[in-house]
Write a protein that binds this DNA or RNA. Structure first.
Lengths: 196, 196
DNA sequence: ACCTGAACACCGTTCAAGT
DNA sequence: ACCTGAACACCGTTCAAGT
């Protein structure tokens, strides 16, 4: 009933700009604040009301990306046992990375990383990683090495994603290499068989 | 004897521009072709003679980076046994990544990656990785999983480097986490103890 | 409160012209 | 062969002014 359309530049310019920015990223275009404003139908100075500068818009984009990534990871990190949850997490991560290559690169860009983006990235991984180990019997996972393995897990998956997104690795190879990488991570989590 | 100085804009402008670009990267500055030309003492149109456009200069920078990274990796991937060589490789990789954070990000940037850059990245890793397994006795390494493990190894190290360079991980944590990651990779390379 | 229009100081790229 | 100077079409950012 309420007119959701034509509410442009009257309340939701911020959301519109972010959407247009994501469209441009997905299309492989460079981000220009002036071009974004043009596509939103406002003057080039209008975005200033919602984003202090271009970097602020990029930060908002990155935070949004981490929020969605975290949600997809949490959803995927489910299943009856540890193995299934870790593999679900891994597949969800590389899927997001391949489907949003440019956004992921922006999310992990080293320069000018705001405190908000850093916090968003921690939230995105902390939740699903804790789900993976939740409810595990004591004998299945070595607790001491957990944070260490979590870091290595994220690093490995992010590295694979980076290699696919820049042509060092074929996307098709992920079907084989992701389970292999997960198997290697699991080996580190299990108590050593040599009980001595 | 021969005058190496004051040979500017008479033969080595290309090398001078690349050097200035690396200086700017190391200083955390944004790269501007016009600013680079200014610092080299030439007009803003002069770089055109040596680089078709800005991307060509970035590609040359990335190729150079991979060449140096490959040399350092080859030098570090030495030692009496497989373990030592893999750990040397890993430490050399993260050292390069931390010391040349902006350059590494440029080297792995997904956008506009030229065939030359892709070839340089393959050269940088192929050599040292083959050194790691060279001279191994058949029983120590599972040959079939070698390329797979090499990919996972590079991915893991690159992921750790990316996490350090964007603040998700403290650089000091690498001293502990790199050997841990290497140990996990090694487990995957060894033949399974359950000989059945 | 939210947006516009002009202005400022930069870009990358092109091209005739110089030496 | 290598470089210059002017020109073109863009940027991001700022700020007085409008409604």
């Amino acid at each position: 009933m309420s007119s959701t359309a034509r509410t442009y530049h009257h309340g939701n310019l911020r959301a519109t700009l972010l959407q247009r920015a994501e469209d441009a990223l997905a299309a492989g275009e460079d981000l220009s604040l002036r071009e974004l404003a043009r596509r939103a139908g406002v003057s080039h100075a209008a975005p200033r009301r919602h984003f202090a500068d271009k970097q602020a818009l990029l930060d908002a984009l990155a935070e949004d990306g981490f929020s969605r990534l975290g949600a997809q990871l949490s959803q995927a990190a489910t299943g009856p046992d540890f193995s299934t949850r870790l593999l679900g997490f891994a597949r969800a991560y590389v899927t997001f990375a391949v489907e949003h290559a440019a956004l992921l690169e922006l999310m992990f860009a080293g320069k000018h990383r705001s405190a908000g983006v850093r916090a968003a990235s921690e939230r995105a991984f902390a939740g699903p990683l804790s789900m993976i180990v939740a409810g595990q019997e004591a004998g299945e996972v070595v607790p001491g090495t957990l944070e260490e393995v979590a870091t290595v897990a994220v690093a490995t998956l992010h590295g694979l994603a980076a290699m696919v997104n820049n042509g060092m690795l074929e996307a098709a190879a992920l079907d084989e290499i992701v389970p292999a990488a997960v198997e290697r991570l699991e080996l580190g989590l299990r108590p050593r068989p040599s009980g001595a």
